[in-house]
Simulated scan of single mutants.
Amino acid sequence: MVQIKSPEQIAKMREAGLVVAAIHAATREVAVPGASTRDLDEAARKVLAEHGAKSNFLGYGGFPATICTSVNDVVVHGIPSEDVVLKDGDLISVDCGAVVDGWHGDAAYTAFVGSGHAPELVELSRVTEESMWAGIAAMKQGGRLVDVSRAVETYIRRQPKPGGGKYGIIEDYGGHGIGTEMHMDPHLLNYVDRRRGKGPKLVPGFCLAIEPMVSLGTPRTKVLEDEWTVITTDGTWSSHWEHSVALTEQGPLVLTAPDGGRAKLAELGVAAAPDPLG
């Protein structure tokens, strides 16, 4: 069952989404050479405390931290640690969430540590982020879930990869519904699997966490012995971007973007819904 939200419930999710956006801003400042990934986790905890929000990551299935910090070939679910110290040239994806009055927000970004990053890494992050926005723009009334998957995949497949070859669209992980829980139906693939059909119809009140994960090589992954950390099987580096999005009568509202997605969606010819919080 897909949980359909009322405008009042979407407004509450927007509150949670803005807390997530604040965590992103705080952790970006800390993600510098010499910082540990534990330092980023501590910054996230401070933001949650300042806003009176709860973490939806800490304790989820036994996860031991407030955020996920995935460095270089780690795709998702990297555990913050004082032993993982960021170096100049690293690529880090930070995934985090917040709960406000029982309503969830969830988003991720990829950042470059230091300077002098290889052009193929810059392009990897750009392609991943832009594919997420293509998926967000595809959230239209009367559409189907598969339209979002198709938009993400189509964008990635059309981008030339520096040095040749193809980008790897991670197969084992994808987006999801979000609302009174962090992970809810439906599961959102970042590619089209015709065996799964078109999926549910997109209607006002439909909320999704859209999160492409893309590598410079394989689409395949494996989980390390800590039972959380997911890496690419060929050691290639990856990028992860995510926003929580609500479809309203007035269009999509990017719950975890400071401006509700207005500026980026305008570039794509899509009008963002008004922000319920003003």
Rank of each mutant, 00 (worst) to 15 (best):
M1V: 12
K5F: 15
R14G: 04
E15T: 10
G17M: 07
L18W: 00
V20Y: 00
A21Y: 01
T27P: 00
V30L: 08
G34T: 05
S36I: 04
D41Q: 00
L48T: 01
L48P: 01
H51F: 13
S55M: 07
N56S: 10
L58N: 04
S70L: 13
V75I: 15
H77D: 10
I79M: 12
P80C: 09
D83N: 13
D88F: 00
D95C: 06
A98T: 09
D101L: 08
D106M: 03
A107P: 06
A111R: 06
F112A: 03
E123K: 15
S125K: 12
S125W: 07
V127E: 08
A134I: 01
G135H: 04
I136E: 02
M139V: 09
K140N: 00
Q141L: 06
L145C: 08
A151Q: 10
V152I: 15
E153G: 07
T154I: 03
Q159V: 08
Y167T: 03
Y167R: 05
G168K: 10
G175K: 01
E181R: 14
H183F: 15
P186Q: 11
D193F: 12
R196N: 14
G197L: 12
G197S: 13
K201L: 13
L202Q: 09
P212N: 07
V214S: 07
S215M: 07
G217W: 06
P219N: 01
R220C: 03
R220Q: 11
K222L: 12
E225Y: 06
D226G: 13
T229H: 14
T233W: 09
D234N: 10
G235A: 14
W237G: 02
H240M: 11
V245K: 03
T248D: 06
L253S: 11
V254N: 01
V254I: 08
T256P: 01
A257N: 05
G260A: 08
G261I: 03
A266E: 15
P274A: 09
